[in-house]
Design a protein around this nucleic acid. Structure first.
Lengths: 200, 200
DNA sequence: CCAGCCATCCTAACAACGTTAAATGATCTC
DNA sequence: GAGATCATTTAACGTTGTTAGGATGGCTGG
């Protein structure tokens, strides 16, 4: 069925254009401007065609969330080229907060509780994987045995996302939030080193 | 103007009933059910009456956010009767996460980024004050001088709120999030003690 | 006591939202 | 080329936040 595959290809292209347009609207004009009709306008279709590619708006937004996490992870992996492990960890911390500041609206839907929590977790998997990698290299480098690895990983994740959310508050600001993230991970790592049976 | 004060009294009562009804709807049926018409129905008025007491829906929601922070702070202060400082700190950590689990919808609007960030900060002042008190008593008790007190305070705040948000994810769960909060603060405090010029 | 005023309340409506049904047009299959 | 399938649009439904205009009732000054 050659025709069918061409159709499928065209469908996939349109689907991608919709996501792209939605992302553009979200990043430029915020979450309140992200409406089905505006997205349809941007891709020069009428509103119902969106529903041929996504079951509903939530499904489309979820796609944006996944895209956001992939983008964030990619940027963070770029920052992971820093050779020194501790510096790398601190850099990842501040850079994750910086990402939240540079993509405020995208980061908002990434962490908004309006999106189903479990599906949000699934979208965040690449980010969590990166954290696990980093934490293993760090504990290996310092001969630190963590009492509960997954626990430590979740703690870092929760801490960074919480502090990044703090950054949107005007009186805190993103630069300060970056500093907070660095200090927080620094303190956490120091705490784990102090707790480790080898160094403690 | 005796009549005017009676009017004002009645107005205040109605206003309070609206907030109460809104809170009830929010906690029971979630944020999507929190609509002006449903609130008006609950207080046996028509929808436009709500706008005689609140400029718009956001203003009303902001009131719920402030109420939520007051409620949370009150519960946490109750937990602050624990005499041992370190146990008190850990208790506050887990209890703050527990509150998020017992009032999921309320906690959602408290931390949702749809509400203006700066006004959310203003609503969170009592909670921050409690944190500051706790942190000063802790550093006094252990002769720890924190390099930057406000920084440490914001770190704890961001960490706890971030981990509490983690708790709504099904695969994490609230009990585990409570444990994470305890461990996170424990590790942070240990890190600060290790860093203090007196004990370090 | 009564006319007038002012606050309060409701009905009706507006624009915009997510979403669906039905109709139209294009494209592919045989 | 005829019939079926897909793509697309127009129209509409129900709901949302919000505002305008008119009715109603109690307070105030004479």
């Amino acid at each position: 069925m050659p025709a069918s595959t061409r159709r499928a290809r065209e469908r996939a292209i349109t689907r991608g254009r919709i996501i792209e347009a939605a992302l553009h609207i979200l990043e430029n004009d915020g979450v309140t401007a992200l409406t089905i009709r505006r997205i349809a306008d941007a891709v020069e279709y009428s509103a119902p065609v969106v529903y041929q590619h996504f079951a509903n708006k939530d499904a489309l937004v979820l796609e944006l969330v996944a895209h956001g996490h992939r983008l964030m992870t990619a940027e963070l992996r770029q920052a992971a080229e820093e050779p020194d492990i501790d510096r790398r960890f601190l850099l990842l911390a501040s850079e994750s907060v910086r990402f939240a500041g540079e993509h405020p609206h995208l980061y908002q839907v990434m962490n908004d509780n309006t999106v189903d929590a479990d599906e949000r977790l699934h979208a965040a998997v690449p980010m969590i994987d990166l954290l696990r990698e980093l934490l293993t290299s760090w504990s290996d480098a310092h001969d630190v045995v963590l009492a509960d690895f997954d626990e430590a990983c979740d703690i870092v994740w929760g801490t960074l996302s919480g502090i990044a959310s703090l950054g949107r508050i005007g009186t805190v600001g993103n630069e300060r939030a970056q500093q907070l993230a660095r200090k927080a991970t620094q303190t956490l790592l120091r705490g784990w080193r102090a707790d480790s049976p080898v160094n403690g």
